[in-house]
Write a protein that binds this DNA or RNA. Structure first.
Lengths: 343, 343
DNA sequence: ACGGATATCCAAAGCGCTTTGGGAGGAAAG
DNA sequence: CTTTCCTCCCAAAGCGCTTTGGATATCCGT
């Protein structure tokens, strides 16, 4: 049924060499011939056999990732969404995954095994922590990798894709300050992850620039579940000098926060303003909240896709992508932010 | 660095044929010779090249799965845990994954593409629903598969691994009845998934056998998050004729339920009894609950591993595993169940 | 002692692709 | 008109494994 290179070459009256070259973009083939080849590919539905390519090129055509087995990580919506982006893109290029579950303490060994197995061409790393030791490890492994996020307190000489968390929360905070808010709270992700650290930093910077200070009592760190959002918000509302605005590190947290606010009988956007970071989770759209949410937006799925793209391009040496990318998050103002209520 | 078959054969003064046969368990090789070969493998650390094996055998050495992109599925802890089991086992045998994210409406096409790609030797299916159309689809695809769970209202002629959900909740319910409980509630998973359906059935059966009835007001279906557990339990407690015992379909649900009970000032195991189904999530152990939880236990991770094992054995035609398995869940009595309180 | 099993082993032919090392033919250069 | 240089194409050699189709040697019964 499926044709192979040899048959395709015969069909065209060409040699396998030429057909192979035409397909792989080598220069020493006539433009017209190349067109004929491409046309024939379309007609026959020819797809190169990956196993043969692997054997011939020594490439594995697959990317490895260590799946962390730890509380609140593999389990969370955000991970699934990111994985979806990665998977979508990988499948397009007919790339495989090697998913290696590993407890944090074995991670190092797992990476090494994976790299040594010859079964993956590249590795992927996420959930960056401050001074993350895994980066040095990966560098020593002589296998390409991309990290999602950035470490803190490390040299910056490794490939990454991150969003400008500092900038996003700086912008969000400044918007709130401009609206007159003085008491602003933060419901953040786990405190050891760098994105949380940076978001808090962005917020603090904006406050300081406007002569305000970050009140530590108004900052909560936790796994990003709706439950934690609910509890944090409840506690904030009980605070003697309750905040008039709150930043959430995820729409999932915001979900819980909104619930707490409603329960307290307050009006979002009037009594209290809310801005959430939106990872663009398909089942949780900020515009569908009862009061549409002002957000800093950056798609996690897109990030997953982009990382796959870069990893694959790196393996195939096709296309040229920047080694380090910092995506800006868009600040999208909706109804959940309004002027600070008068005392 | 790494030796290949040829080198290994030379080293041993044998032909590649013989070495290959020795390794793959063919009979036409002297026992002593085989030992020598195995010894040499140990010494050299020889590992067959998977790409070459793929090419020679036509097998892909990888298993495909469609990752559902839908609310409360890919996102949940249970999925992660299951995936971990699958991944662990697959990696042991040096198998790959092809993770194909897909929205429910494209699932069919995704499966077909995956099967046709020649990139996977077997498929895996989960989140069974009643009358699940995907089973007939997979059967028509002429590619081996195993489903996790069972459909309802379908012929039973397909390979599956399921746990005896009916039995588990039957047992749990009977225990509660024996303890004198008459009003028993159920906090269940989504109502369209077969495990939920069966658990409710098991519960109903036990009740009926003891002259009791399932009160529909005491049954909630929802995604299995701690939040939903909390809310359901809260509502049950407000019920005019509140239950004295509750079954939860997951320890995650139980987490929320326990919170609601504590908040209401009730004592677990005395004022109200609780039994949860325990998927053996490493970060949520029933014995670590403030009042250790009585559970029906069956490890999700083990199920993932077992499915990988079966799939792999099927591909390799090594080992003989039953085509259909129904695992019993163990009823483990801890402190959360006690005699029904006197009115 | 001999034909025929039986037990072990081997050479060689693929699997489908990439890549090396030319070769033919025409254009540009001398 | 020869020499050199491109341009475009091809034959063939792998990549590392499995598997077919024998070989060779041993051992059996008769």
């Amino acid at each position: 049924m499926a044709v192979n290179l040899k048959q395709l070459a015969e069909l065209l009256g060409l040699s396998q060499t030429t057909v192979s070259r035409a397909l792989n973009g080598y220069p020493e083939v006539n433009a017209e011939t190349r067109q004929r080849v491409l046309q024939a590919v379309r007609e026959t539905g020819y797809r190169p056999n990956r196993a043969a390519q692997r054997l011939a090129t020594g490439k594995a055509y697959s990317i490895g990732m260590v799946m962390p087995i730890a509380a609140g990580i593999d389990s969370d919506v955000h991970f699934g969404e990111f994985l979806a982006g990665l998977g979508e893109e990988a499948v397009k290029h007919d790339f495989h995954f090697v998913l290696n579950p590993s407890a944090p303490e074995d991670e190092e060994a797992t990476f090494q095994r994976l790299a040594a197995s010859g079964n993956v061409d590249a590795l992927f790393l996420a959930y960056m922590r401050a001074n993350d030791p895994r980066i040095a490890m990966l560098k020593s492994l002589s296998i390409p990798f991309v990290v999602h996020g950035r470490s803190i307190g490390e040299t910056r000489d490794y490939p990454f894709l991150d969003i400008d968390n500092t900038g996003a929360f700086y912008d969000a905070t400044r918007l709130l300050i401009q609206l007159g808010h003085q008491r602003i709270a933060l419901i953040n992700g786990p405190d050891y992850l760098t994105f949380s650290i940076r978001r808090m930093k962005g917020m603090a910077r904006a406050l300081v620039e406007h002569g305000l200070n970050l009140d530590e009592a108004l900052v909560h760190h936790s796994l990003m579940t709706d439950e934690h959002g609910y509890r944090s918000m409840q506690r904030f509302l009980q605070h003697p000098d309750a905040p008039t605005a709150v930043l959430c590190s995820s729409t999932v947290l915001a979900l819980g926060a909104v619930r707490a606010i409603n329960q307290a009988g307050l009006a979002i956007g009037r009594d209290i303003s809310l801005i959430a970071h939106d990872d663009v989770l398909p089942m949780l759209k900020p515009e569908n909240f009862s009061v549409p949410l002002t957000t800093t937006r950056s798609s996690l799925r897109a990030a997953g896709g982009r990382i796959a793209t870069r990893l694959i391009a790196g393996i195939l040496k096709s296309g040229d992508y920047p080694d380090q990318e910092l995506w800006r998050a868009e600040l999208i103002v909706r109804a959940s932010t309004g002027p600070a209520p008068q005392k």
